[in-house]
C-alpha cells in the first residue's frame, strides 16, 4: 500500500444520501399504498399504521442491538413507559392535559430517561447477563403498572387519549389515511435522526464498541457512556412508538399488552430484517407486523367465512401459530442468515 499523502477522512454525514436506495423504494411503496386505496378498497392503510409504529420501535431497538451489539429483551417496557407517560400527561382524567405534541415529546424524554436509568448500573454487565436484566426490567415495569392502580388504573388502562392534530385540525378516528401519512412522516424523521447519529462521532463509537470493546477502550472511547447513549436513544424511540400506539388505540391498553412477546416481536423485526440495517428494520416490520396484525387475522377471517375455522379448534385459528412463527423466525435466521434479509453493508461504516 502506498500512502504517501494522508488519505482524506471521509465525512459520511455529507457524503451519504439522505435515504438509501432501498429506503427510497420502500417509502415510495408505503406512500403509494394509500393512493392505491383511492381506487381499490384494500383496507390496508389502517392496519399498516401498526407496521409504521413498530418500525419506529424497531429503529430504536436497532440502535441498541444492531449498532451497539447489546441484546435487549425488554424493549416493550419502554413502549409501556412511553404510552403511560403520554396517557398520564394528556388524558382528560388527569390534571395535566398538555396535548398531543407536547405529550409526545415528554414521552420520548421520559422514555430516554428511563433507558438511562436502567443503563447506568447495568452496562458493565456481560452480554447475556445484560439481556436477562433487560428482560427482568420489562417484567418489573409490567407488574408495577398493573399494581400501582392509583396512578395507572391497573388493568383497565388509561383512556380516552387525544388524537394527533396538525395545522389546527384534529385527526378523526375514521380517517386512517391522515394518521397513516403522519406516522409515515414520523418514521422518516426517526430514520433521518438515527442516520445522522449513525454517521456522527457517537455512531462510530457504537460500532467500535460492538466490534471490539477492548480495542475501543484503547482508542479512548468509554464503552459505558457510549452504551448508555445507545440505550437512551433506543428507549426514547421505543417510548415514541408506545405513545403513538396508545394514541392510535386511544387507550394504553392493559399493562399485560407490553409483555415479553412484544419485546420478542420487535427483536424479530430487527433480526429478520437485518441487524444494523435501517432498511432491514422497515422490511422486518412489514414482514413480522404484517404477518402478526394483517395476514393472520385476515387468514382467520377467510377461514371463518369458508366455514373451516371454528372458535373451538385451537389448530384452525391462524393466530395460534404466532409463537411458532416468531420462534422459527429467530431460530432459522440465526442458523441460515444471521445477517438478516437486508444485511447491513460493511463498507457503510
Amino acid at each position: 500500500m502506498k500512502t504517501t499523502a494522508p488519505l482524506p477522512l471521509p465525512s459520511p454525514a455529507r457524503a451519504a444520501p439522505l435515504f438509501s436506495r432501498g429506503q427510497c423504494l420502500l417509502f415510495g411503496a408505503l406512500l403509494a399504498l394509500p393512493m392505491l386505496e383511492f381506487f381499490f378498497d384494500l383496507g390496508l392503510s389502517a392496519p399498516t399504521r401498526f407496521v409504521l409504529v413498530f418500525a419506529i420501535v424497531g429503529i430504536g431497538l436497532n440502535v441498541v442491538v444492531g449498532f451497539t451489539g447489546l441484546l435487549h429483551l425488554g424493549i416493550a417496557a419502554f413502549m409501556a413507559i412511553g404510552a403511560y407517560a403520554f396517557a398520564i400527561l394528556t388524558c382528560s382524567i388527569y390534571p395535566f392535559q398538555i396535548g398531543f405534541w407536547p405529550g409526545l415529546c415528554a414521552a420520548i424524554l421520559i422514555g430516554a430517561a428511563a433507558g438511562a436509568f436502567l443503563g447506568a448500573p447495568t452496562l458493565r454487565l456481560r452480554g447475556d447477563y445484560l439481556a436477562i436484566v433487560t428482560l427482568g426490567f420489562g417484567e418489573i415495569v409490567q407488574d408495577l403498572l398493573k399494581n400501582l392502580e392509583v396512578i395507572t388504573k391497573g388493568t383497565q388502562g388509561i383512556n380516552p387519549l387525544p388524537a394527533p392534530w396538525f395545522f389546527g385540525a384534529t385527526f378523526a378516528s375514521d380517517t386512517p389515511k391522515t394518521w397513516y401519512f403522519l406516522y409515515l412522516g414520523l418514521l422518516m424523521l426517526c430514520i433521518l435522526l438515527v442516520r445522522n447519529l449513525e454517521h456522527s462521532r457517537i455512531g462510530r463509537q457504537w460500532f467500535a464498541v460492538r466490534e471490539d470493546e477492548l480495542a475501543a477502550r484503547c482508542m479512548a472511547i468509554r464503552p459505558d457512556r457510549v452504551k448508555l447513549v445507545a440505550l437512551a436513544v433506543g428507549a426514547g424511540l421505543a417510548a415514541l412508538g408506545g405513545a403513538l400506539l396508545a394514541s392510535l388505540l386511544s387507550s394504553t391498553g392493559e399493562p399485560g399488552n407490553y409483555d415479553f412477546q412484544i419485546s420478542i416481536l420487535v427483536l424479530c423485526i430487527v433480526i429478520v430484517g437485518g441487524i444494523g440495517s435501517m432498511t432491514g428494520v422497515i422490511v422486518g416490520a412489514l414482514v413480522m407486523v404484517g404477518m402478526n396484525s394483517i395476514l393472520l387475522p385476515l387468514l382467520g377471517q377467510k377461514l371463518q367465512q369458508a366455514g373451516i375455522g371454528t372458535t373451538t379448534s385451537v389448530y384452525l385459528a391462524p393466530d395460534n401459530y404466532k409463537y411458532m412463527l416468531f420462534g422459527l423466525a429467530l431460530v432459522l435466521m440465526m442458523r441460515f442468515r444471521p445477517k438478516g434479509i437486508i444485511a447491513a453493508r460493511e463498507e457503510e461504516h
Binding site: L71, D128, I264, N320, Y323, M324, G327, A329, L330, L332
Partner: peptide
C-alpha cells in the same frame, strides 16, 4: 446468537 436461538426454541415449545 445462541441466546436468540434459545429464545426462538422457547417460543416454538410454548406454541
Amino acid at each position: 446468537s445462541q441466546l436468540v436461538a434459545a429464545i426462538g426454541v422457547s417460543f416454538i415449545i410454548v406454541n
